[in-house]
């Protein structure tokens, strides 16, 4: 597995049309580290995540200013090869989105794009990724069945496994447990705890307790601004900004 990298975000602003969705974000994410991002709906958390793999490019109205460095690469640069960037930065979406393929082909989708065609190599990748996403035991006997046959929680772990199959350096998760039951959520969190030994992880969540459980550092976003960022243990006990305090104590959002 390749070495995870440090991500440095400098004065990042993002616009969707006339809407100013991120305002001057400056933030460092150390390698092998889980950054949790919390904040109410519409605070720009997802937009931030989507700049890290340049998925915002799909929206022709979107525009960004500022700079993001991922290791040595300036990923916000217009010359940046977004296709290879996205292979380094995997993403798990809020709702599980299995592609209309078999479980196996879902997992092999990314590796095949990178030119891996040999069956035994793919077999190996599929097994390793499913194990890392704590799904292997449940599906190992039916890899060729449609991914739609899995339960919601299994589908989301499939999506995580599909990301891991690309051997990314960074894993982005956009409220991955918002539609899941507590047991599936626990499985995902279990997988994340193992993963952070080898990956840099950015976890957007609307569940402050999840951030408290999983994240090393937590950032609080509000209306497109980064209000506060700090070690999770400190932020949840002694937030410096009153708005952070109000949010984590459940007064709004």
């Amino acid at each position: 597995m390749s070495d995870p990298v440090q991500i440095s975000v400098r004065n990042l602003s993002v616009y969707y049309g006339k809407q100013h969705v991120l305002r001057g974000i400056t933030l460092d994410i150390p390698s092998r580290h889980v950054l949790g991002i919390i904040g109410p709906a519409g605070s720009g958390k997802t937009a931030f995540l989507r700049t890290l793999n340049r998925l915002n490019d799909l929206n022709p109205d979107s525009r960004m200013e500022g700079k993001i460095l991922m290791g040595e690469t300036e990923i916000t640069h217009s010359d940046c090869d977004v296709v290879s960037l996205r292979k380094r930065v995997g993403m798990v979406f809020a709702l599980p989105v299995p592609l209309p393929l078999s479980i196996y082909d879902n997992l092999a989708y990314g590796p095949r794009l990178s030119g891996i065609r040999k069956r035994f190599q793919l077999d190996e990748i599929v097994e390793r990724s499913l194990k890392a996403a704590v799904l292997w035991e449940e599906v190992k006997d039916r890899l060729q069945t449609s991914a739609f046959r899995l339960s919601g929680g299994q589908q989301q772990r499939l999506c995580l496994a599909r990301v891991l199959a690309m051997e990314p350096e960074v894993v982005l998760l956009d409220e991955p447990c918002s539609g899941l039951d507590p047991i599936s959520t626990a499985r995902i969190e279990e997988a994340l705890m193992t993963l952070k030994a080898t990956h840099t992880i950015v976890l957007v969540t609307n569940n402050t307790k999840q951030a408290a459980r999983v994240a090393d550092t937590t950032a609080f976003f509000l209306m497109g601004e980064l209000i506060e960022v700090g070690p999770t243990s400190r932020l949840f006990v002694a937030p410096t900004d009153s708005r952070t305090n109000e949010y984590i104590s459940g007064r709004f959002g």
Partner: peptide
């Protein structure tokens, strides 16, 4: 669904792929 496209792009596929 748009989400299929997003997943494919996020896994490093080009538009044509």
């Amino acid at each position: 669904p748009t989400s299929y496209r997003e997943v494919s792009f996020s896994l490093g596929a080009t538009r044509w792929e």
